[in-house]
Design a protein around this nucleic acid. Structure first.
Lengths: 220, 220
DNA sequence: TCAAAAGTGTTAACCATACACCCATGC
DNA sequence: GCATGGGTGTATGGTTAACACTTTTGA
């Protein structure tokens, strides 16, 4: 019984979506790239195991984490029958620089488009996670997890464009998001930018939870 | 490592959604109601295990089956740590009368609204499956799995109304579904009904698969 | 003064919704 | 002939989509 984590991060400056990979320190696939993960302990819940492995292997803690899918084909692990429950996590890359430790000889934020070949069936897990992220972003405001707490509307739009892989109209995007009334205008602007400074916003989680309970629809 | 199955069936005549429950033949919870399921064999995939258990305990085979969620809280099974991968299945109740066998002393189609208390954390699994069914029905044409191969538009509408738990407008429903162009008019009508006979349709799976590849949207 | 990104409204097409009556059939 | 459910169209309001220019700032 194992868990694996697909951790997505957004590099706001370089405009690409990245995934956190580790180099395996132990066989099988020693030295190869893989998703962070490992075996579940006896008294531990699956989500706790995922968070523990994430912490151990990459230093990340307190991130958005959700169950993705369970992979259990008999031949997926050369050591024998290992069923793995995959989770996906979303983090803001700038606030969460990863550091390597114990099980992993290193961790690296790799652009998803350029991911190397991965150990086990991790390529398939990554693909499943990407599909889920794209699907979910369209009707739930997951995206905020990938941004800093204070962000501009352009950053938010860029995020949607990167994940959904298509261009969005600026005016329509703003209209729609502001109409959703989930954003709080912080009445502040960016500093030290070489162009007109943009307003900063934050996501209003409280309002979001209330509306979600009522069955509100957040489709983009 | 176990699997459990939430099998939904639609009783077209009585207009309710049912779930297939078994009476446990062995401890723990002997004699209590539970979802069909059991342990995964060594060389078997998770989905194969789910199908096997379904066949053994209820006689059902060749049904629509999809992974739902994995439940792994340490205390969920009194025998010790058992992680269970839950699947949900959709069947047409009239074409699939269940029969009991081996592990189960009986299987019964129970209206979901009146489900008895269930063994293990099966109530939670059922709840999760219901939420998934409702959510998915809105943007994927899952519903056809619950109907006979040949059905009327009224049957289809009733299904949506039962699962989504709200009334739908007849004219708008027909317009929308016919516009989706996923239904084949069989140029036949019902027989032996005490009112005007309705046209029969079938679902066009081929067209559906093609459109799905192109990212078409089936929202109702 | 230039470059770079922020910010802002209007129009037209489309889609969702609300709504009521006649039709075919078996009893 | 009546009860039952089948089948049909239109008008309105709201939502989405397309589209271009001015503003602010720092270098």
């Amino acid at each position: 019984m194992a868990v694996d984590c697909v951790v997505f991060g957004l590099d706001a400056t370089k405009a690409d979506l990245r995934v956190l990979l580790i180099r395996r320190a132990i066989p099988p696939f020693k030295g190869g790239w893989a998703l962070p993960g490992g075996f579940v302990w006896a008294g531990e819940s699956l989500e706790d195991a995922a968070r523990r492995e994430l912490k151990e292997e990459t230093g990340l803690a307190d991130v958005f984490l959700e169950q993705l899918y369970t992979f259990g084909e008999p031949g997926r692990d050369p050591r024998g029958r290992v069923v793995s429950v995959a989770y996906y996590a979303l983090v803001n890359l700038n606030e969460h620089p990863p550091k390597a430790s114990s099980d992993a000889e290193g961790a690296a934020w790799t652009p998803v488009a350029k991911a190397p070949s991965l150990a086990f069936d991790h390529a398939k897990i990554l693909e499943t996670a990407l599909a889920r992220l794209k699907g979910k972003l369209r009707y739930e405001p997951l995206g905020f997890e990938l941004l800093p707490r204070r962000f501009t509307l352009s950053q938010l739009q860029r995020l949607y464009e990167i994940v959904l892989e298509r261009a969005l109209d600026k005016r329509n995007f703003r209209k729609k998001l502001l109409a959703m009334d989930r954003l709080v205008d912080l009445k502040e602007v960016e500093k030290d930018v070489a162009h007109r400074a943009a307003r900063l916003y934050r996501f209003d989680e409280e309002k979001y939870r209330q509306l979600k309970k009522k069955g509100f629809n957040f489709e983009l």
